[in-house]
Write a protein that binds this DNA or RNA. Structure first.
Length: 231
DNA sequence: AGTAAGATCCAC
DNA sequence: TGGATCTTACTT
């Protein structure tokens, strides 16, 4: 049971076989629990983005790592739903996606922000912020995909492909996804930091819990910024 | 082999 | 607003 009285249950593989665009909003209010190096974190998911792949769904997704087909990097995105695709962003940040969509097609939901509801101290240590946590420091623990990855402790290469449905241990880490009912107050808009038309309202594939303080501040993607400047 | 850009964050 | 930091993928 969560704060708002929502009942959560372990995610089943079948919950995640749908297209990322359909699964993404269902992950809002869900929780990701991790146990990494003996430290347990529970994260309430507040902001996500859907990514498809070549040939996934009716619309090809020019903003996806899988837009050109299977590669060594994006292999996890083409595999069994329920695993986590963990990739390195800008050489620094490990970002976490829940793989979904039918097996053999590419798809994932990027976890962009969340609220740490258990293990705040461990998350703060990993993030390098001192205790006691101020209100804003607590809010910022997992606000943005890079911070989120660091807070939950999942790291590129080591934990890419870990199974969040069966909870199998991988390189000292365990991850589990817990789902609840679909929330009522969900907003949608352009994805953040995505270049080209994929980052514009042509792809309103970012979803967040309306009004939640842990949702990351909106920043124009390169393509969207260019589009906005062009009269 | 070389290079440019990237689903970001933080300090200046 | 720019630098960090390194991997990937595309170009020569």
């Amino acid at each position: 049971m969560t704060r708002d009285g929502t009942a959560l249950r372990p995610a089943r593989r079948d919950d995640l076989r749908g297209l990322p665009l359909d699964v993404a909003p269902r992950l809002l209010g869900a929780e990701l629990a991790t146990d990494v190096d003996g430290e347990r974190i529970r994260l309430r998911i507040t902001e996500v983005e859907a990514y498809h792949g070549r040939g996934t769904g009716d619309l090809p997704d020019p903003g996806s790592h899988a837009r050109m087909g299977p590669t060594a990097r994006n292999a996890t995105m083409w595999g069994e739903p329920g695993h986590l695709y963990v990739y390195l962003s800008h050489g620094i940040h490990s970002c976490v996606n829940v793989v979904c969509g039918p097996e053999g097609t590419a798809g994932g939901v990027l976890l962009r922000a969340g609220e740490v509801v258990e293990g705040m101290d461990a998350a703060a240590r990993r993030r390098g912020v001192g205790s006691p946590l101020s209100r804003t420091a607590l809010r910022d623990l997992a606000r943005g995909p890079g911070r989120l990855g660091q807070a939950v402790g999942l790291r590129y290469a080591l934990h890419d492909g870990i199974d969040a449905v069966d909870g199998a241990e991988q390189n000292g880490a365990v991850a589990r996804l817990m789902l609840g009912r679909m929330l009522d107050d969900v907003s949608a808009g352009p994805r953040v930091g995505v270049a080209g038309v994929a980052g514009t309202m042509a792809f309103p594939w970012r979803f967040w819990i309306t009004g939640d303080p842990t949702v990351s501040p909106f920043r124009w993607g390169r393509g969207a910024a260019e589009a906005a400047r062009t009269p």
